[in-house]
Design a protein around this nucleic acid. Structure first.
Length: 914
RNA sequence: GGGCGGUUGGCGCAGAUGGUUAGCGCGCAACGUUGACAUCGUUGAGGUCACAGGUUCGAAUCCUGUACCGCCCACCA
């Protein structure tokens, strides 16, 4: 024992064993037809990522599953990799070169990309290193990156296939535009946030009746104008109409008339469209097709044109009056308001709370923006992806996410996949410059709202490589599309592209067939739409098969006040710091104990103490057992040894272990991680350590005790290994008959024959006896020298026999020097009383007893029990209960009732003696 | 506007398909150097399970409604 320190030191062991596992190639899985595969693909972290608690939770769960199923005999593969994270990474590198006083345009595309690759080489694997610190058993030799050459081939293959099937198209469409990142975003990348803004009521003059009053001098005279409410006055410069609801009586007469757009002095029509809500504002909307998705649709219905009034950077474009050009959109708003005010065209301003899209990468307010982009026709891909979930081929855990998923699938819209950035997969499309000239997208700033662009007419060629000449006009003036693809356009292929699809050699084909579909996808709710839904769509379309059978959605990690952890809020708890301070196993155990299925996890530093304490408990229990172990004795097979196990405590701990094992196994299979962790914890600490090891101290050198101690420890370590890989490996390696590594050992086999509820009950009786004695001692502060009498209820020979034959247990654990057990015992005068089922306990006091104190204590006990008795008696007096409740419940209630009555009677009898 | 979660002792949480004397961890109180562990042990105090109805022999658990707290979705001009 001297050579093992009394404190577990995680630092040394973690590094040592992780290296050992890697060096021995234990994470690597290969096709093996003899074995069932178990496969998880990691949600690829961004290369810009640094490990946070969300990662820690997410990857701990996956690691537990992979280790568990591997021990269960599966051929387990955890496929790792990273995501190139287009916008995020580009932003990081841009910031870096900005420090040097440069922009990416200064560098040029090629140089810039070089820089990004350099950055990736330097920092891109930080997250991987950190995952290793977490103990993750990923098959690292397979590590993929979404920008790998092979992976990129998958991406362009997918683009081309979809384009050929008309599932990818190009269109002039209104999309979400981030003026800071200067790129289009998908709907999911624009995150709505409540903003308290203002609602401006602006007067739009009706077209003048007489020539005498030129339009530009129009001011506010009642009946000469109508009022429009808007939150974004700067977009009025692009108004193409005003609209009212056709059923709105107030404005019926005005439909078809024209108004003069203030500041611009253009004549625009007043139209009727049922999308207008008469109750909002004045019931009249301005229609700005190029800068509002609603208006865009109205404009489509009414064949209006659109005018784009902003530049990509959010300043006002050439299409607006000189005064406003080049002004930032928010400066322009102020200037316009000022001018309107001056002309008396600003009726009033109201406070207005509304929700506005923000860029999910830089949090800038997103601008709805008409532009030419590429789209995936998601509605067409949705059908199968919906069916596999409706029919239960893919199951969500917890189930409630199913509904969320299906609801989203019901409302699919075109997915904007082109990004105006440089870092990413370049779109495999080429333009014939000559054809493009003739295909007029934008006519003098006014755009005809035809949604889809005819690729051939526009001279667009979708192909793997530069086609060199235009199939339409034969011209050779050809250029590749400048845009790159949305990052999620590569991630949605992750479950099969990581296996090399579609360019597969024989071996790869085997692997894909073997490991796909994968078993489970473990992720957080935020990413269901971004990623999970799209992977299902891609899987169904390209593989004709689901990508995973189960989707386990875990909660979000929050701080103790319930706020999401984020760097900018400074409420982060760094997992690496926790690992340094408490150890990796402590981190894993603690975090996993907190994840009740799908509930959010609230963390504070102190939470990790429980994990650390548990690790230390395991450490010291093992230390004790190992230092007392006779290596010669413990090598036997437990089943063969079973006949030699005759003692209650031995039978009991085996019974309890196998029940625990059964629960833990089931919990892990059902993704009930906190149950698994807590059940194992409860058993190891409060049954094995508190009772078994304590009792074993007296018989430590006997053969059965040696074997049981060894077997229970060894099996418990295996049971705990998925959750606490490092400490279990360290200790297991110290066992005399250990194999190569605990991580490739077998999950303990459930030996049901050792489960014995009768044994459990016998032990429970003894435990309650010991607890009762301790209780009295604690109340009266009695020394162990005191005599204890246990009076068995008349006729309860079995109880008498049980307690007599295990009097050593009582003497050891209750520290009794003088113990008497029998049916015909009298309560000694100076003694305190406790009652347990079928027995009474008298603990003799050294001096005279404080009669009042003891009487009060007994009275309180009686009162408590009588309260409980009243409830069960009520049930038994209820005829309905007796006729309708199941028999087993009635029997139990009767037994309980009798037991309570007996206890109360005994207590009352004893009370008489005081 | 729609949807989803939460509300259980001072704090943080468990309580899958209704029957427990309502549990656990932390904290608190008292005691404790008994052959691993003070990152420990023993004992204890502390809860009408948010509220109001309902279903049921029986509800923390199922249904309806209310109130707070939180999240997600939505083309609230």
């Amino acid at each position: 024992m001297n050579d093992i320190p009394s404190k577990y030191n995680p630092k040394e062991t973690e590094e040592k064993w992780y290296q050992f596992w890697e060096e021995n190639n234990l994470f690597h899985a290969q096709v093996n037809p003899q074995k069932k595969p178990y496969c998880i693909v990691i949600p690829p972290p961004n290369i810009t990522g640094i490990l946070h608690m969300g990662h820690a939770l997410n990857n701990t769960i996956q690691d537990i599953l992979v280790r568990f199923y591997r021990m269960q005999g599966a051929n387990a593969l955890w496929m790792p990799g990273t995501d190139h994270a287009g916008i995020a990474t580009q932003n990081v590198v841009e910031k870096e070169i900005y420090q040097e006083g440069l922009s990416r345009q200064d560098l040029g595309r090629e140089k810039f990309l070089e820089r990004v690759w350099q950055w990736k080489e330097k920092y891109g694997s930080t997250i991987i290193t950190q995952l290793k610190k977490l103990g993750c058993c990923c098959d690292w030799v397979r590590t993929r990156f979404t920008m790998d050459e092979q992976y990129s081939t998958s991406v362009s293959e997918v683009f081309i296939q979809l384009a050929q099937q008309d599932l990818i198209y190009k269109a002039n469409y209104i999309i979400n535009w981030c003026p800071r990142c200067q790129t289009a975003l998908s709907d999911e990348e624009s995150q709505h946030k409540e903003v308290s803004g203002k609602l401006y009521y602006i007067k739009y003059p009706l077209k003048p009746v007489s020539q005498a009053e030129p339009a530009d001098q129009l001011t506010s005279r009642p009946a000469d104008y109508i009022i429009v409410a808007t939150t974004r006055p700067e977009t009025m410069l692009g108004d193409q109409a005003l609209a009212v609801n056709p059923r709105d009586k107030r404005y019926k007469k005005l439909i078809g008339q024209s108004v003069i757009l203030p500041l611009v002095n253009e004549e625009i029509p007043l139209i009727a469209d049922s999308a207008v809500d008469p109750k909002f504002g004045t019931g009249i909307v301005k229609v700005t097709p190029a800068h509002d998705p609603n208006d865009f649709e109205i404009a489509q219905r009414h064949k209006l044109t659109a005018k784009v009034v902003m530049n990509p950077d959010g300043t006002m474009s050439q299409n607006v009056p000189l005064d406003y050009r080049e002004l930032d959109r928010f400066e322009a708003r102020e200037a316009i308001l000022e001018d309107l005010q001056e002309r008396g065209l600003l009726e009033k301003v109201e406070q207005h709370l509304h929700s506005v899209g923000h860029c999910y990468r830089c949090h800038t307010m997103v601008e709805p923006y008409l532009s030419e982009q590429w789209f995936v026709d998601l509605p067409k891909l949705g059908k199968q992806a919906t069916d596999v979930v409706t029919k239960g081929k893919i199951r969500f855990y917890p189930q409630r996410w199913r509904k969320v998923y299906l609801n989203w699938m019901k409302n699919l819209r075109g997915w904007c996949i082109s990004r105006q950035i440089w870092w990413g997969h370049r779109i495999p499309a080429w333009y014939c410059i000559d054809c493009k000239k003739t295909y007029d997208f934008f006519r003098q700033g006014k755009v005809l709202l035809s949604e889809k662009i005819n690729l051939l007419e526009a001279g667009i060629i979708v192909a793997e490589q530069n086609p060199n000449f235009c199939p339409k006009c034969g011209g050779t003036n050809i250029r590749q599309d400048e845009d790159v693809l949305d990052t999620w356009f590569s991630s949605w292929l992750w479950p099969f592209a990581t296996f090399g699809w579609p360019v597969l050699d024989k071996e790869e084909k085997q692997e894909l067939n073997y490991f796909y579909p994968t078993d489970v996808l473990v992720t957080a709710q935020e990413i269901i739409f971004f990623w999970v839904a799209r992977m299902i769509m891609a899987g169904m379309y390209f593989m004709k098969e689901i990508p995973f059978r189960d989707v386990y959605i875990h909660g979000t990690v929050r701080d103790i006040t319930g706020t999401k952890m984020s760097k900018s809020l400074g409420n982060i708890i760094d997992p690496l710091e926790i690992i340094t301070q408490y150890g990796c196993d402590a981190l894993r155990f603690s975090i996993i104990s907190l994840v009740a299925t799908g509930q959010d996890v609230f963390l504070s530093r102190e939470r990790f103490e429980s994990g650390r304490n548990f690790a230390n408990k395991i450490w010291n229990a093992s230390r004790f057992i190992l230092s007392n172990l006779d290596k010669q004795k413990v090598g036997v097979d437990l089943c063969l040894f079973a006949n030699s196990i005759t003692e209650l405590k031995d039978k009991w701990i085996l019974s309890r272990f196998y029940q625990t094992l059964d629960s833990v196994t089931k919990a892990l299979k059902n993704y009930r991680f906190n149950d698994a962790a807590k059940t194992a914890y409860e058993f190891f600490w409060h049954e094995f350590c508190d009772w078994y090891i304590e009792l074993a101290k007296k018989t430590i050198s006997s053969d059965p005790t040696q074997v049981i101690l060894y077997k229970m420890l060894e099996k418990s370590l295996r049971m705990l290994h998925p959750v606490m890989p490092f400490i279990t490996e360290e200790l297991w390696q110290n066992l005399p008959h250990a194999g190569k590594s605990i991580m490739v050992s077998n999950w303990p086999h459930l030996q049901k024959q050792f489960i014995d509820k009768k044994i459990d009950r016998q032990m429970e009786l003894i435990i309650s006896c010991i607890t009762a004695i301790r209780n009295i001692r604690s109340v009266w502060e009695i020394s162990p020298a005191a005599k204890v009498k246990v009076k068995i209820s008349t006729g309860k020979a079995a109880v008498e026999k049980l307690l007599k034959s295990h009097s050593a247990y009582l003497q050891d654990l209750a520290k009794i020097e003088d113990l008497e057990i029998g049916q015909n015992l009298k309560r000694p005068k100076s003694s305190a009383v406790a009652v347990i089922p079928n027995a009474e306990i008298f603990v003799c006091l050294a001096g005279a007893i404080d009669v009042e104190k003891e009487a009060a204590r007994l009275k309180q006990k009686i009162k408590d029990l009588e309260n409980i008795l009243r409830n069960s008696a009520k049930k038994l007096n209820n005829k309905q209960f007796l006729t309708r409740a199941p028999e087993a419940v009635i029997r139990q209630t009767k037994e309980k009732n009798a037991q309570l009555k007996e206890s109360i009677r005994k207590l009352k009898d004893n009370l008489k003696g005081f």
